[in-house]
Design a binder for these strands. Structure first.
Length: 160
DNA sequence: GCCAACGTTGGC
DNA sequence: GCCAACGTTGGC
């Protein structure tokens, strides 16, 4: 699969996770994790086609109190077939997937940093410089979203 | 726990 | 290929 973007360009992302399931603390403890269980084609396509090692990630807690950006991570490995699609016992098992023709992919993500204070969704919505971010848009459910370099840097500079 | 918004499925 | 019905996400 050919990417629209050159492989050597560093890109920026926001990745959502429910902290009850897997939080920035868990990532810090584990150092790296496979971003398994994504079952949305748009999010899959980002991982499969556009995410490369060394891309930077805003680690976002959803369904949290409060929801918001909790940390930083980096993409440490390019996409591989999501092992859970082959695991009959997993809730992410997909009977249509085969080893020859996997359907779902996941990247590996590595811990980088934790925000001293979560940058909550409420606060994000009030920041004029970040008004283009997808995550603040109503009804935006995509669990992996592209972030502009400008927004990424602004957040790190002012809120980390 | 509610429900708006969105994605997916499947009948036609 | 349309679209109604259903399932899921995720803020609140």
């Amino acid at each position: 699969m050919q990417s629209n973007n050159p492989k050597n360009t560093q890109k920026f992302w926001l990745m959502k996770t429910e902290p009850d399931v897997f939080s920035i603390k868990d990532l810090k403890k584990n150092k790296t994790t496979l971003w398994e269980g994504v079952r949305n084609y748009q999010a899959r396509n980002f991982m499969m086609n556009d995410m490369n090692p060394n891309d930077q990630v805003l680690f976002y807690h959803s369904n949290a109190e409060p929801s918001g950006i909790a940390g930083l991570a980096t993409v440490s490995k390019a996409a591989i077939p999501d092992p859970l699609q082959f695991d009959k016992k997993s809730e992410y098992f997909d009977p249509k997937a085969t080893k020859e023709k996997p359907i779902w992919f996941c990247v590996e993500v590595k811990y980088k940093d934790t925000f001293k204070k979560n940058l909550s969704l409420n606060e994000l919505k009030t920041i004029k410089d970040l008004s283009d971010m997808l995550v603040i848009k109503k009804g935006q459910r995509l669990s992996i979203q592209p972030v502009s370099e400008k927004d990424f840097n602004f957040i790190c500079k002012n809120y980390l």
